[in-house]
């Protein structure tokens, strides 16, 4: 536990984007409470690429959901850019998600009846952007992720990796401050996974995007600057990963 506390202290500076203190959350199966988070403390600095690792059911996704403002904790504090999320109303949280925080899901979660470009445009539609600016930005983002020429394809006409790239473009649409990725390569083959991780890494390194990612895979996690290990609803270990050696992006390692 001393390692955890230390990590919080280390990251506690003015560039802190997310601050979590003593976070608790339980789910109920009938009348039985199943604790998912049992006192989480950590901070995330602006421009950081951080991953959370741990076995199934350890509370990784719950933690992401609470930080992303799509779920609420039972107890504890969650601050995003100094704003306490637990005090925000549903509408204020929705605005926060629209402007500051975005999600990339394991199963892409694209809207099946909208084309790639339309999917990317959805957050901009919600924000009220004009049609021309939406189209221009969507096309730029799709080109950025290497999907130029596939704008009008429906999700069912795209491969898994391509769908995830559309999903990342959608997450980038409103220039968020934080991108939350829940196992973004979990449903992909290794080649596609590599493309996605490279994309996320480039976004972080070239554009300074803060990314918080959940993964099962250690090689995927090693792409990040820091790995938080979770077990039974707690952060049990923090690990700094300075380079990409040994990661999925390390070309010296055979897939």
């Amino acid at each position: 536990m001393s390692t955890e506390k230390q990590a919080v202290v280390v990251n506690n500076n003015s560039a802190v984007i997310v601050k979590v203190e003593d976070l608790h959350k339980s789910y109920f199966l009938g009348k039985t409470a199943i604790p998912a988070l049992r006192g989480i403390d950590f901070e995330l600095t602006r421009g950081e690429f951080c991953s959370i690792m741990g076995p199934s059911g350890c509370g990784k996704t719950t933690l992401l959901n609470i930080i992303g403002g799509i779920d609420r904790p039972d107890r504890g504090l969650v601050q995003f850019e100094g704003v306490e999320l637990t005090t925000l109303s549903d509408n204020e949280l929705a605005d926060l998600r629209l402007d500051k925080i975005s999600f990339v899901f394991q199963f892409y979660n694209l809207l099946p009846l909208l084309s790639a470009q339309e999917n990317v445009e959805v957050p901009m539609v919600f924000r009220g952007d004009s049609r021309s600016s939406r189209e221009q930005r969507a096309n730029e983002l799709l080109a950025l992720v290497g999907l130029k020429g596939r704008e009008n394809h429906l999700p069912t006409e795209l491969s898994g990796g391509e769908q995830q790239r559309v999903s990342i473009s959608r997450a980038m649409a409103n220039n968020p401050d934080l991108m939350i990725c829940d196992e973004p390569s979990g449903d992909l083959d290794s080649a596609s996974a590599k493309v996605i991780l490279k994309l996320l890494n480039d976004l972080n390194k070239d554009m300074g995007m803060t990314i918080l990612m959940v993964t099962h895979d250690r090689r995927t996690a090693k792409v990040c600057d820091r790995i938080l290990h979770m077990l039974d609803g707690k952060i049990v270990q923090e690990e700094a990963t300075p380079g990409i050696e040994g990661s999925i992006l390390d070309d010296s390692i055979e897939d």
Partner: peptide, 16 residues
């Protein structure tokens, strides 16, 4: 449920 969940995650409000 899921579609609305995704849209809410993107920033759709309850009244919408």
């Amino acid at each position: 449920h899921k579609t609305i969940g995704i849209l809410k995650a993107i920033g759709l409000k309850n009244r919408d």
